[in-house]
Design a protein around this nucleic acid. Structure first.
Length: 298
DNA sequence: AGCCAGGCTTGGT
DNA sequence: ACCAAGCATGGC
């Protein structure tokens, strides 16, 4: 088969917009009715169509498996939904967010992004990551077909997420210029550990959940919540259950309305209550809480 | 103007 | 083991 610059990935129950905007990834932007972003060194436009997800790359692609893997289009989604507990909160969350998916991201990009996420709103995280990529990322492949900017001004040529080696070579001041504040030394330290091979991110695939979590938590700026985000969004540990303020609020209100439960207790509850795909359940609860709280805007 | 954001670290009990 | 403060910064 000849390499093509576009493909349609057939999917059912896949809400592309909810997935790309649900706070698990920070590089996708909606232009018109298509999403623009970068996976690895590939600039992509993704559009949801009745036939599936229509992907357009900047140049011919011989094998699209990497995109199927990134988008996780081949998983047994009904089996994931069926694994959830049959209780009222989960029924409501799934009903409100049907088609919400988890991506499978690059470990370094995911780790770095979530080091930058602490006590930041999603819009701000996106801004920091955009600065970082614009200044220190690598050019994408085949960008002669890149879309031109609109009347608001030309958008910069899309770049990759900066590899660890690129960030490791920077100074803290250069990173702080990307508006990341006190997170700069944490990101710099992590980048140096990865670049110096003191930390083998690929090696974490061979560990079990607890061991991989312990490894990530050795990093400065990485506690349990951020480690769980990386384990869930990059490594595919579906048992990982990041507990942030939204999910904590959801668990407290929906499952522990009377007594106060510690983070440890909530994670323990989550691990046993939500089943083997607890991480997916977490994403539904998170998204559900956010859309439920949304009416305050506008 | 002031409050808060998908936290983590450190220092106090 | 649990609590509080401090940390930088931009959006609303």
């Amino acid at each position: 088969m000849a390499p093509a610059t576009e493909i349609i990935l057939p999917v059912a129950d896949y809400d592309l917009a909810a997935t790309l905007a649900s706070g698990q990834v920070f590089r996708w932007r909606l232009l018109g009715n298509s999403w623009h972003g970068v996976v690895g060194r590939q600039f992509l436009s993704l559009t949801q169509t009745p036939a599936g997800i229509h992907a357009t790359a900047a140049g011919p692609i011989g094998n699209w498996d990497w995109l199927r893997h990134y988008l996780q289009t081949e998983i047994d989604y009904p089996a994931v939904l069926n694994s959830f507990p049959d209780d009222e909160p989960m029924r409501r969350a799934v009903a409100a967010c049907r088609g919400l998916r988890l991506l499978r991201q690059d470990p370094w990009e995911c780790l770095a992004s979530f080091i930058l996420s602490s006590t930041k709103q999603i819009v701000q995280i996106r801004q920091i990551v955009a600065h970082l990529c614009e200044r220190f990322g690598e050019p994408c492949e085949g960008m002669h077909l890149a879309p031109t900017g609109d009347s608001a001004g030309p958008s910069p040529a899309p770049r990759s997420f900066p590899p660890a080696s690129a960030i490791a070579a920077l100074t803290e001041a250069r990173l702080r210029a990307c508006k990341m504040g006190f997170r700069a030394p944490s990101l710099l330290a992590a980048a140096r550990q990865v670049a110096d091979r003191n930390l083998d991110l690929q090696g974490l695939y061979r560990l079990d959940y607890a061991a991989a979590r312990a490894e990530l938590m050795k990093l400065r700026g990485v506690g349990g919540k951020i480690a769980d985000c990386v384990l869930l969004f990059a490594y595919g540990f579906d048992c990982a259950f990041p507990v942030d303020v939204w999910v904590e609020r959801a668990l407290q209100e929906l499952y522990f309305p009377r007594r106060r439960a510690s983070d440890q207790r909530l994670r323990q509850f989550a691990a046993t209550h939500f089943g083997p795909h607890a991480g997916y359940a977490q994403q539904f609860l998170f998204h559900y809480m956010r859309v439920a709280a949304e009416p305050r805007r506008h």
